[in-house]
């Protein structure tokens, strides 16, 4: 009955098959581990490169001048290295984006999670995902060539290059992400809680406002913080539509270079490797990295906390 062509376990050991196989499994294990460890290497490399290439800059320019200076003119004859204009423009556009994303995103997420029929959700969720895939340079085109001329008819004093329109477009851009993450959070709120609320006679909107939003609060907050991080780090829309001129202004109708726009501007020009101008890119890049890292870590922990609750 038994087939002699099929080796038994002990024959497999004797023939060296087991040993060979163990070796392959071991090699693959190492390869898989190295691949996973690559992510740590990438993070380390980002931090290392940013520090290494901005180090000479910080050796020359006092940190207080960099952080609190109000003029950013690194390639002028009398260079000034105050990052505030870039930082303010970055935070202003990101803030404008949040002004759009929070009310719209929250309403859409509540609608999708509490009101929409499954069939509607099945259509809208993939559509949102598709929108996430629209290249940012296309959004930049929208901002500069479509939205700005349109809004100039209504907003007096709106310049051709301004912070307002990129801010709005950024808000629309991060909307799909914010909606999908906060909707996931809302849907993760156990149905038992909802049923309890309905049993008390609450209407749908009361359940949404009094049960679902508080229940999903840390998840929703995470969605907005991660959205904010994306807005801060977004580049092309700002490089195209917010201008490349550092400008310390609180007026969103004016143009002003953001951190990312500045990096693009310098990269487009011919910056000599190792020059002070080259180092400024890495100095502001480091600042940008730290800001987004802060948002990402806070967002990560809020999300994880949220997942642990449910």
């Amino acid at each position: 009955m038994t087939n002699s062509a099929i080796p038994t376990g002990s024959e497999l050991i004797k023939s060296g098959f087991v040993k060979r196989r163990r070796m392959i499994a071991g090699i693959m294990r190492v390869f898989l581990f190295l691949s996973a460890a690559l992510s740590i290497f990438v993070t380390t490399a980002i931090v290392y490169i940013l520090l290494r290439d901005s180090w000479p800059f910080f050796m020359q320019i006092p940190l207080t001048d960099f952080l609190f200076g109000t003029m950013w003119t690194p390639v002028f004859a009398d260079p000034q290295f105050g990052v505030l204009p870039l930082l303010l423009a970055t935070l202003q556009t990101a803030g404008l984006a949040m002004l759009i994303a929070i009310p719209f995103g929250l309403t859409m997420a509540i609608y999708l999670s509490e009101y929409a029929k499954p069939a509607v959700r099945e259509v809208i969720k993939p559509a949102l995902e598709m929108l996430e895939a629209v290249p940012t340079v296309v959004y930049g085109y929208f901002a500069l060539l479509v939205m700005t001329p349109f809004l100039q008819q209504f907003v007096p004093g709106l310049k051709g290059i301004n912070l307002l329109v990129p801010g709005i477009i950024l808000g629309i851009m991060i909307l799909p992400y914010v909606v999908s993450v906060s909707e996931d959070a809302m849907r993760a709120v156990p149905n038992g809680l909802r049923e309890g609320a309905y049993a008390l006679g609450m209407a749908k909107w009361q359940v949404a406002v009094k049960v679902v939003i508080p229940g999903a609060f840390s998840g929703i907050t995470a969605a907005f913080i991660l959205g904010m991080s994306r807005a801060v780090g977004e580049t092309m829309v700002l490089a195209i539509a917010a201008g490349q001129n550092p400008n310390l202004t609180w007026d969103p109708r004016e143009g002003a270079a953001t951190i990312t726009a500045y990096i693009v501007q310098m990269s487009l020009g011919d910056v000599a490797h190792g020059s002070l101008a080259y180092q400024t890119i890495f100095a502001v890049g480091l600042l940008l990295f730290l800001i987004t890292l802060f948002f990402n870590v806070v967002g990560f922990y809020l999300r994880r906390k949220f997942r642990e609750v449910y």
Binding site: M1, A5, P7, L12
Partner: peptide
């Protein structure tokens, strides 16, 4: 899993 590649052997063993 045991590294047997011979088609005839496999077919016979499967049938058995």
């Amino acid at each position: 899993v045991r590294g047997i590649k011979n088609r005839a052997v496999i077919e016979e063993a499967v049938e058995t």
